[in-house]
Each structure stands twice: as C-alpha cells, then as structure tokens.
C-alpha cells in the first residue's frame, strides 16, 4: 500500500512544473495577453511592420538586460550600462571621424565598453567596494568622458556604412506598387534583432553549459561556499562585469548606428529599464537566480508596453506609471510563488 502511494506521488511530481518552467509560461502568457489587448486598442499594433519595430526597439534594452542578468546572478548590480553605452557609441563615432573604417571602429567601441566593465569588476572585487557604489561611480565617469570627448555635441556625418548595423534588415522584400512605385511586402528583420538573438544564445550557452556559468550562479548563491569549493570568485565576478560592459558597448553601437549619429546624451536611465527587464524575467537581486530567456521576455514585456501604449496614444508620463507598476507586480508575483 505504502509503495503504491509512493508510486502515485512520484507520478504526480513528474507532472508538476518546475519553478523555472512555471515562471517562463506565466511570462509568455503575459506577453500574449498584452499583444491581444493592444491589438484590440489599435489595429496598427498587430501589423508586421510594427512587430519589426518592436523587435528593433527592444534590441538595445535586451542586450543591456542580458549583461545585467549576468551581474545580477552574481549578486551584484551594474548601474553604469546606460553611460557606458553612450561612451562606447561616441568613441566609435570619434574613431570613425578620425579615419578608422567602420568595422574596426565598432570593435574598438565594444572594447571600450568591456574596459569599463573590467574596471567595474576590479573595483568591486579587488578594492572591495559594493557594486552599487562602484558602478554608480562608473556611471558618472563614463558619461563625463563621453560629454568631455565630444563637447556634448553629437558626432554626425559618419557615412552610410555606419548606419547599416542599426538600420539594415534581413529578408526585406520590396514589390511593385499600383503606380509603379516600390511597395514594401515584408519590412525585413532588423539586424539588431538578429544580433540580440545571437547574443542571447551565446550567453545562455555560457550560463547553462560552461563551468564559468555555473560558477556565476554559485557565486551569487553563496559566495563563501563557492570560494571554499575552489571557485575563483573574483575572476568569475570580473568576467560578469566585463561581459556586461562589452554588451553595453555593443548596445551603444547598435543604438548610435540606428540614429545615424553618435550622441553622448543617449542612454540616460537605460540601466533602469535593463534592470527592470531582468527582474521581470525572474532574476533575483539577492543573486543566484536568473535566466537569459526570462530577461528577453522581460525586455519584450517592457518593449511591447511602451510601443502599445504609444500606439494607443497614452502619454509618456502615464507610461512611466504603468511600467513602474508592472515591475512591482511582477516581482511581487515572483515572491509569492517562491514562498509557496
């Protein structure tokens, strides 16, 4: 009899969803509900064209969010990503102005971002300054450097090739319209969205399949235990901050390329959107918890909210209120679920 019950229980347990799966499904459901609501509110929302716009708009926050997720899983925070984004973008612009070809210039931009992250990691681990303060300092310094280098003026006339990354599209199909004018059949998938997918896949691979990823989780879960188990905790954290910086640099280049000019004032408060994306996606600021899939969904929830509210003609002030509300509700639901 006892054995029978044990069998029954085991079978029941196999049907129960794991915590991660439950969270994923509820988040995807949220996205779908949002899409339905906004489609009803505004017919233009559900067009292919707008879907591609959302993809484009979400790419930058998505990349920042992925970097932040790495740092948040280690139990840290990176407030500098918005400023690093601006610095990397402007450095790229200035380097192009100085005569460097576009592609190497973009690599330099990513390297500048990585360097900022490396400094963050160094200050956090070796100087033992709390991540909040360390990255707050970097946030001010990176912004200051970007403004100082450019004299606070946008760097423009960077040439056509600079805009390809941000404005180009894959599989764009243009047919012939009724009066012999070109008409867009399929607007094409924006390059930034493809880049986001590639970044998401490679970072998810790092987190799930590589020892470094496991160590990132272990460090955030119990730093002392990880150290005693032989994990190089400092090195792991430095890797997380450096990747966050590099992704902020990449996001900066994508954003500036989309705008066609490098602007030192871009990206203010982006770090908060990125943190919100990670947190909506289930990452815990206490460390040890978070997934790339969740963060991407979180980024899309924010992106769809912004876009849909815009299409519905809601003022940007009201949008702030709604998004702030969503962040709190998402975290609250997450906590309720964990307390069960």
């Amino acid at each position: 009899m006892v054995e029978f019950f044990a069998q029954l229980r085991a079978r029941g347990a196999s049907f129960r969803l794991s915590k991660g799966a439950f969270h994923r499904i509820s988040a995807i459901l949220t996205v779908l509900i949002l899409i339905v609501i906004f489609s009803v509110a505004s017919p233009a929302f559900s067009s292919t064209n707008n879907a591609m716009t959302i993809l484009l708009q979400t790419s930058v926050i998505g990349m920042l969010g992925i970097g932040l997720t790495l740092v948040i899983i280690t139990g840290g925070i990176d407030l500098s990503v918005g400023s690093v984004l601006a610095l990397a973008g402007t450095v790229t612009g200035l380097v192009i102005k100085a005569g460097v070809p576009v592609l190497p210039a973009m690599f330099i931009g990513v390297a500048v971002g990585a360097l900022c992250g490396l400094i963050n990691g160094f200050v956090v681990t070796k100087m033992r300054i709390t991540p909040f303060v360390a990255t707050l300092g970097m946030m001010m310094m990176a912004r200051g450097v970007a403004l100082e280098l450019t004299g606070a003026a946008p760097v423009s006339r960077l040439g056509e090739s600079f805009s390809i990354l941000g404005q180009g599209r894959l599989f764009r199909i243009v047919g012939e319209g009724p009066h012999g004018l070109p008409s867009v059949v399929f607007p094409g998938i924006p390059y930034p969205a493809i880049l986001l997918l590639l970044v998401a896949l490679s970072v998810a691979y790092l987190l799930r399949r590589r020892a470094t990823g496991r160590h990132i989780y272990a460090t955030g879960s119990n730093e002392e235990a990880a150290r005693l188990a032989g994990v190089k905790v400092d090195r792991t954290k430095i890797i997380a901050y450096t990747l966050s910086g590099a992704l902020a640099g990449l996001a900066g280049i994508v954003l500036m390329s989309r705008l066609g000019t490098a602007q030192p004032n871009e990206g203010v408060m982006y770090e908060l959107d990125a943190i919100a994306a990670a947190v909506i996606g289930g990452a815990s600021l206490m460390g040890g918890v978070g997934t790339i899939g969740g963060t991407i969904i979180g980024a899309f929830i924010i992106g769809i909210l912004r876009n849909g509210l815009n299409m519905a003609g809601v003022s940007s002030f009201i949008q702030q209120i709604i998004i702030g509300f969503v962040v709190i509700v998402a975290v609250y639901i997450d906590q309720m679920r964990n307390r069960r």
Binding site: R208, R209, R210, A211, R214, H215, Y217, A218, G220, S221, N222, E224, A225, A226, L228, A229, G230, V231, G288, V289
Partner: peptide, 30 residues
C-alpha cells in the same frame, strides 16, 4: 566538511557536489 555545509542553495545536488571541479565533455561543456 564545514559545519555550515558550504552549499550553494540555488544549485542542485550534482552541481554542488562537483562545484569547482565540474566534469566536462571533450568540448569543455559541462
């Protein structure tokens, strides 16, 4: 064996058991 056990609470048993000396495939994956 530490009195505090020194386990990473969010990881499962195998991950804790092999923490810091993970078994890897020939490609270096976990």
């Amino acid at each position: 064996i530490y009195q505090t056990l020194a386990l990473a609470n969010h990881l499962n048993a195998p991950s804790n058991l092999f923490l810091g000396r993970e078994l890897k495939t020939p490609f270096g994956n976990l």
